[in-house]
Design a protein around this nucleic acid. Structure first.
Length: 143
DNA sequence: CGCCTTTGACCCGCGC
DNA sequence: GCGCGGGTCAAAGGCG
């Protein structure tokens, strides 16, 4: 897809859900990471948004918040993964996808090596996540 | 043969 | 107490 600006929107550190770190403590800051990714008009990006993990779609529902259907994904690589992923489009920008990651992965992230050419890069990505700044791990732009 | 995707229905929780 | 919304699970079909 023509999405060179992979980090065009950046997740500004859970700015959507956590409402910025302004006085936000671990209590008001659940393990929810909201990542905004630019996707093409095609649903292919939303249906197979590969962030480095294997996801299995387990449901789709249309909410009143968004005129577009919201997709629910679970980690298919590790059934015991407590993480949950919700993907929905921007009501104002159908070309933008909002991925909400609830929880953390319970298994190794080696699946990410599929899209990362260097193992050391994985460590950098993990460090970035720990730091709280999501480096736009979405690789939809790679398509 | 295996895995993944899609649709529908059901259930639970919260709000008024 | 009732209603609405959201979320999850299950089954079937299709494709690789």
């Amino acid at each position: 897809m023509v999405t060179p600006d992979r980090c065009g929107e950046r997740s500004d550190g859970d700015g959507e859900v956590a409402a910025a770190g302004a006085g936000v403590t671990a209590e008001s800051r659940p393990k929810v990471r909201t990542v905004r990714a630019r996707a093409g008009p095609s649903d292919a990006d939303a249906n197979h948004l590969k962030d480095g993990y294997q996801w299995r779609k387990y449901g789709q529902k249309v909410t009143r918040d968004n005129p577009y259907p919201r997709a629910y994904f679970r980690c298919a690589y590790a059934p015991s993964c407590p993480i949950k992923k919700k993907v929905q489009r921007c009501a104002e920008d159908k070309s933008m996808l909002v991925a909400t990651y609830e929880g953390e992965h319970n298994h190794d992230q080696r699946a990410q090596s599929e899209y990362v050419s260097d193992a050391s890069t994985i460590q950098q990505q993990q460090q970035h996540q720990q730091a709280g700044s999501l480096p736009c791990s979405i690789s939809i732009a790679g398509r």
